[in-house]
Design a protein around this nucleic acid. Structure first.
Length: 589
RNA sequence: GCGGCUGUAGUUUAGUGGUAUGACAUUGGCUUCCCAAGCCAAUUACUCGGGUUCGAAUCCCGGCAGCCGCACCA
């Protein structure tokens, strides 16, 4: 049993992760979050919100998970999110159909399946593996398609990323942030990709949770006002250059920007912020690196892109966050498809005097002369140069039809105007988090199987080494642990249960998630809580009845302290959220 | 989507034509019980569908899921 299996087994058994639709045999690529899994996920998301929404000021929005066709036509997903495949009839091997004809035509990826089939047949292309005949090309579209409304309806797609919902709200967001760059929005939500073969548990899902930020910045100024905060942070950088030599660099974020390893401060800041987040949810730093996309794997619109990768026991380094400079690609694409300008007006510090050539068609005269064509004629005139307009009879071609415009119908001058600013299309910095993968990694990194001493006075139990036995302990950060404190009466006796219930109520009022457990022996209950990562356990014993004190046990060290019941709720809160040291919580037992 | 292997309680495991073995876990009880202790009792399973057969967990076919390999991963 490898670590992945152990973690997934524990996750299933204890209510973190379940296969979806198990009752009906299940479906690959879907997972349910059980009671503890949901809570763990919420706590991770909560930390993300604290960092990105509260501290960075990137307000959260929520947009539909179904998108209309236009959105994904503009984003390129309708065209580019599917690949033509064709299979060998003999050996069953599948190939990218467009790659098979790459050498024959220039733009193979622009061809339809019918064109690809024709090319494959006419050029007598055979299976590269076995030489067998190839079947017809067919599309693998990774988007879930649906219909909006009754009947055949309007085409809709489940969103493959939350990002588009933020891009299409650009104008609203711009007004919300009072027309000033930089600004941004975040969204935490489900996205959908109809993966061909999702087979790595929660690592590759057909429905998954993303936490994305889209930050719109001035393309001419990619510095970050708060860069100093992280300039000294040392990260494992696996740069494009490093990948060629198989070396990971330990450098500060400041130096990485200075040496040109990371394209600019703004991107670097978000790489460091990502690191901060991942560390806080419990990813161990020596299993974390940032890998730069190589030029040939980077999407054509990005200038620099780094993935946070976490090392897992079974899958090796897996991508959990992508931090990309998407430039103005998305805004331009939506501007073009929607025929709406998506830009920001930026005022200069000092207005500039700009001299330019201006054409002014006399619409009052053009209208009667050209009727319905007047506007087209005027537009054509505006595009002309001074030389063209100075001729006696100006010839304008509209829709293949020639029109003669007499000189009196159009005026033109050199004008010097005061320009106090300009419109720019912002660039987008996008940190995109795969929450499900991060959640799995926190579980794997928290998962520990350790040998602990067997206490004396126990009888009957035989093992290879009678002094030790193994315990499974989920060393989750106390901030993300689903159950934050367990309340355990030493024995199932009403005189102990009474005070225990009072403590449960006290701690609940503090907003902490507490589990009460009086079933089985105390040791078993400690182990149960170790397994689900409960950081602290309060035990009520007979001494509690005499002096109103209880013991608190620390999950990781198994040490105990004794402390008064009075104020215990504040103490636990500080231990969980305030970073208070366990040793200071009471007198050692 | 293709090929190979696999599928028995919550977990793990025995059984290879006659409805299922054990362990751990879980639940209730006893015990002044602080690290999976002990004792008593209880609950829980043949992945699903079809076929062969008097009878299928067992043999055959198919679906689903898992693992491995191929392909895919904007």
């Amino acid at each position: 049993m490898d670590k992945y299996e152990k973690v997934i087994e524990l996750a299933k058994r204890r209510g973190f992760l379940w296969n979806s639709f198990e009752l009906y045999g299940g479906a690959a690529g879907f997972y349910d979050y059980g009671p503890l899994g949901s809570t763990l996920k919420r706590r991770i998301e909560h930390i993300w919100r604290e960092l990105y929404v509260i501290h960075e000021g990137l307000m959260e929005i929520e947009t539909p998970t179904i998108g209309i066709e236009e959105v994904f036509v503009a984003s390129g997903h309708v065209g580019g999110f599917s690949d033509p495949l064709c299979e060998c009839k003999k050996c069953g091997e599948a190939f990218r159909a467009d790659h098979l004809v790459d050498d024959i035509v220039e733009v193979a990826d622009a061809l339809s399946n019918t064109e690809l089939d024709a090319l494959i047949r006419n050029n007598d292309i055979k299976c590269p593996e076995c030489g067998g005949d190839l079947g017809d090309a067919y599309e693998f579209n990774l988007m879930f398609r649906t219909a909006i409304g009754p009947g055949s309806g309007r085409a809709g797609y489940m969103r493959p990323e939350t990002a588009q919902g933020m891009f299409v709200n650009f104008q609203r967001l711009l007004k919300f942030y009072r027309d000033k760059l930089p600004f941004g929005a975040t969204q935490i939500g489900k996205s959908y990709r109809n993966e061909i073969s999702p087979r790595q548990g929660v690592i590759r899902l057909r429905e998954f949770t993303q936490a994305e930020a889209e930050i719109f910045i001035d393309p001419r100024d990619k510095t970050h006002p708060n860069f100093e905060r992280f300039a000294g942070t040392v990260l494992n950088l696996y740069s494009e250059h490093g990948q060629e030599h198989g070396t990971t660099l330990q450098v500060t974020i400041g130096d990485a920007v200075k040496q040109g390893i990371i394209a600019h401060e703004f991107l670097a800041y978000h790489i460091a912020l990502t690191n901060h987040f991942l560390r806080r949810v419990g990813i161990s730093p020596d299993h974390l690196r940032f890998r730069q996309h190589k030029k040939n794997e980077m999407a054509h619109y990005a200038i620099d892109c780094w993935d946070a990768e976490i090392k897992t026991d079974r899958f090796g380094w897996i991508e959990v966050v992508g931090i990309a400079d998407r430039t103005d690609f998305d805004l331009n694409a939506h501007a073009k498809t929607s025929k709406t300008e998506l830009s920001v007006y930026i005022e200069y510090d000092e207005p500039e005097m700009v001299t330019s050539f201006v054409v002014k068609p006399e619409m009052g005269k053009l209208g009667p002369a050209f009727k319905g064509k007047a506007k087209d004629v005027a537009d054509a005139l505006k595009a002309m140069t001074r030389e063209e307009l100075e001729q006696d009879g100006i010839t304008v071609v509209v829709d293949g039809e020639e029109f003669i415009v007499s000189p009196g119908l159009v005026k033109f001058t050199e004008e010097t105007v005061k320009v106090s600013g300009e419109t720019v299309v912002p660039h987008v910095i996008e940190p995109s988090f795969g929450i499900d993968r991060i959640l799995y990694c926190t579980m794997e990194h928290a998962f520990n199987e350790e040998m602990v001493a067997v206490h004396e006075g126990r009888d009957g139990k035989e093992s290879k080494d009678p002094k030790e036995e193994s315990r499974i302990v989920f060393k989750l950060q106390s901030e993300v642990a689903p159950v934050q404190v367990a309340v355990l009466p030493l024995m199932t006796k009403s005189e102990l249960i009474g005070p225990a219930n009072k403590i449960v109520a006290l701690v609940r009022d503090k907003g902490l998630l507490v589990s009460y457990d009086d079933s089985g022996t105390i040791g078993r209950r400690y182990r149960r809580n170790d397994e689900i990562g409960t950081p602290y356990s309060i035990t009520i014993d007979y001494e509690s009845l005499d002096d109103r004190s209880v013991t608190i046990r620390d999950r990781d060290s198994m040490d105990q302290v004794r402390t008064p019941i009075e104020g215990i709720e504040d103490l636990i809160y500080e231990l969980v959220y305030g970073g208070r040291e366990f040793k200071t919580a009471g007198t050692p037992v």
